[in-house]
Design a protein around this nucleic acid. Structure first.
Lengths: 182, 182
DNA sequence: ACCTGAACACCGTTCAAGT
DNA sequence: ACCTGAACACCGTTCAAGT
């Protein structure tokens, strides 16, 4: 990539990070280009679809979550590792509110720019889930897709401003449905 | 209301029902007016905000759900009545996909056109919940708002096409979190 | 190779002008 | 009273023209 292109790419991403964190995943692309001081066509050259932009924003966080899953396997009991990881994953999804819808759709669509990111994240979660199922701490009738779906539901709840006061409690309710009660 | 106005109102509502059921709650209002054969201003005269249109569409279903809650109290055990009602409420919300977001927001916003409808529906659900809590069948640490939030999460899951194959299973998982396990 | 911004086909919403 | 549709200020997306 040419140096000027690289600069535009990086700056666009930085601006998009702020704008999308503030206004959500549906923020105006025109506005992002405007704030970045580049032409609208430049944004489209680097990110041909909105999903490409979301993917660029989310990939680093997904990689971090994958690493984190590995860490938790070494430092926590399977059930607790799963709960902690799930809480962190919800928080990551919540940074860009509204993005979870695209993420869930991307799981089933190999053409999506977000597909690889979401696939990797589901795999990390599925591994923690399998570990907790092996010890009998998690329900046996869930698979990685179910976990990702429940993560989506939790992120959706977290994204609704009117439910903010109950968000933590609702997390406990749904997370408690994944873990088997003792 | 003048006879011609009434006719337009009814026709707009009938067209909106079809279009929104097909395309979701974000369907183009212009398109609805066009298909109804009236000017765009006429739609706005009858339904000044999108929420007013959604409210008109949903009110009948909400009233039906409220009645249904009463019926179930007489014909089913508290826990089962709650589950059955919740399943039906999710189905109603799913008819107009994407509407659940507005519904959840309306609960906390007395200014919303949807507020009254959602409030009535929450009350009906809360009553079934309280009944199931009294017999110990439902978790004690949930209130009507939590139930409405979980209904929202379930409707959201149901609205994601990629999760359709697992929708029934995910309903069981979350509904199972509301009911106390025996 | 990359950037720009006008152009196209859409939105939601308002409102002056008509009947 | 009620209806109409142009007008306004936005979108996402494309692409000819420039550097």
């Amino acid at each position: 990539m040419r140096a000027d292109a690289r600069k535009n790419y990086d700056h666009l991403l930085a601006v998009a990070r702020t704008v999308i964190a503030e206004q959500g995943a549906e923020a105006s692309l025109r506005d992002i280009a405007r704030q970045a001081g580049v032409g609208l066509g430049t944004l489209y050259r680097h990110f041909p679809r909105r999903e490409a932009l979301l993917d660029a924003l989310l990939r680093a966080s997904f990689d971090e979550l994958t690493r984190r899953a590995g860490d938790l396997e070494g430092s926590a009991a399977p059930g607790q590792a799963l709960t902690v990881w799930l809480r962190e994953a919800v928080a990551v999804a919540h940074v860009y509110s509204g993005a979870i819808e695209s993420m869930v759709a991307a799981i089933a669509d190999p053409e999506s720019a977000l597909h690889a990111s979401c696939h990797a994240m589901r795999a990390a979660g599925a591994h923690l889930l399998a570990r907790a199922q092996a010890t009998g701490e998690a329900r046996a009738d869930l698979d990685g897709t179910d976990l990702f779906a429940l993560l989506g539901a939790l992120a959706w709840l977290r994204d609704q401003p009117s439910l903010a006061p109950r968000a933590d409690h609702l997390f406990d309710v749904i997370a408690g449905a994944i873990l088997v009660r003792v």
